[in-house]
Design a protein around this nucleic acid. Structure first.
Lengths: 278, 278
DNA sequence: ACTTCTTACGTCATTCGTAAACATC
DNA sequence: GATGTTTACGAATGACGTAAGAAGT
């Protein structure tokens, strides 16, 4: 028994009129007649008593209608819920961010998103650098904003949100701290703090959160490459931020699980890039 | 969302394996893949996370499965119930009968029917001549056995069950009561009791039940045409039964509402004619 | 290398509408 | 004769299988 047969039967049973049922289904009256006949053939008994002037349910038809109506409504509701989950923009979106910069970016994007999609809620959650991607993969957050490169198996990356010059964070008492700028060559061979979001070739002490990174840098355990906004958001007397002349800019973007790529997520990812300043 | 999409989704969600799902659905694996992809396209989000080695439900897919599974099962149950009502032979069949002869015919037919269809119940109900067809039309009985002609708008007649010579019932003291046989010509112009099951041109006093008919005949209010079995089943000292030489035999058969022509009814009607003697 | 899911393409069944026929009031 | 249901027939959508391809273990 196909969908169109169920819908035709329910429409005729409710309207008790083939013409009106056809109009409701947006098909021809003749087709409704054929469908009902086919259904009656399968069931083995007439479902409607009909003359060219009156249509009424038979006993079997009545029972089928009473049983089928709520069941089919539940099927449609289940599908509709899935579409709402997947395609609908309404609903709650949990957005994770790493660090102050991503947080500022997201506050603006979330406000714009809420304005544009009144039925939607956005909640922001700070996640620590170390477990950021795990939070995405486990579904704790629907979408994550952080510094690139982001990605991996099962993950989809959104467009670049922000591009900023890189700074070299170093202990305030370090010789490089007094320089106006450094080059990548100056950094070669120096001890670096290791963190998931840092340069891939970083070596040295490992930190899980950004505050740990800064503490280690301030203690003189090594340097760290950060974005320009850190100078404003994380000023510390024991850490100096020195521009790196010849480093490519640090890029910020969003990432989400490919399998949880709902319309909500895509809509937010499309909304976010309109922020350029933090 | 079509039936095949729902069934493919449920099959894959239960098996968590495209190949096994395809085998269960009796379609190709490639087709299952296409169907699931199409469904995901409509929903707007992946329903399964899959590699070539592992298939698992996404969050949206999980919820859809939990919602859809019971709802679709209810739809199928409703259809199955209708088919059982219509095509299935199992279930209760209410059979009405008029008079002793039909009753005897049906007792045998019902026994045979119960033996052949163990899942079915047959209940016999005597109905009075006057309201017999109303009982059928109202659905009080599914099928009626009585003397022909039976039928009318919305009614279907089954095959002839029994053919018996006609007798003329007349008061014992009447001159015709002593005759060995009469002819149709002998009856012309004589007062006759009127009853729904009698000859269509009957005139005179009206009776609703057969006992009323016999009482009126015994009282000398008129004659009545009956079947041969009446001599054995309704012997009365005040009524004589005289064979009618040249009358066509009295025919007994079944009738049911066309709109309630279930497989049960048809099966019983097909079973009944095997009785020839009463 | 093997199993399993996906894509490409051709074939065929089915749905659907138009138009005419039929039935009822 | 008007309204409403059914039948007949042709066109187009789409369901399906086969076979080749891609991806993971």
């Amino acid at each position: 028994v196909e969908r169109h047969e169920i819908e035709a039967f329910l429409a005729v049973a409710e309207e008790l009129h083939f013409g009106r049922a056809a109009a409701r289904l947006r098909i021809s009256t003749a087709r409704v007649s054929q469908i009902v006949r086919g259904l009656e053939r399968q069931v083995g008994v007439a479902l409607f008593e009909r003359t060219s002037r009156r249509v009424s349910l038979t006993a079997v038809g009545r029972r089928l209608f009473d049983d089928l109506q709520p069941a089919y409504a539940a099927v449609q509701a289940a599908i509709a819920q899935a579409v709402t989950d997947g395609r609908g923009v309404a609903g709650r979106l949990r957005v994770g961010f790493v660090g102050a910069a991503a947080g500022r970016l997201l506050v603006q994007a979330a406000q714009r998103f809420r304005r544009r999609h009144p039925g939607s809620e956005v909640s922001l959650h700070e996640v620590q650098v170390g477990g950021a991607l795990d939070q995405v993969l486990s579904g704790a957050v629907d979408l994550l904003a952080g510094c690139l490169p982001l990605g991996g198996p099962g993950l989809t990356a959104g467009p670049v949100l922000l591009s900023e010059p890189r700074l070299f964070a170093v202990a305030a008492g370090h010789p490089l701290a007094r320089r106006a700028a450094v080059s990548v060559a100056d950094l070669a061979g120096r001890p670096m703090i290791s963190a998931p979001c840092g340069p891939p070739d970083a070596s040295g002490p490992v930190a899980e959160t950004f505050q740990e990174v800064l503490a280690l840098v301030g203690a003189g355990d090594g340097g760290f490459v950060v974005g320009e906004h850190v100078r404003r958001y994380y000023p510390r007397p024991d850490v100096a931020y020195v521009p790196i002349r010849d480093a490519p800019p640090l890029l910020w973007g969003t990432v989400w699980r490919t399998a949880a790529s709902t319309a909500r997520v895509r809509a937010f990812a499309a909304e976010a890039p309109q922020t350029q300043e933090i």
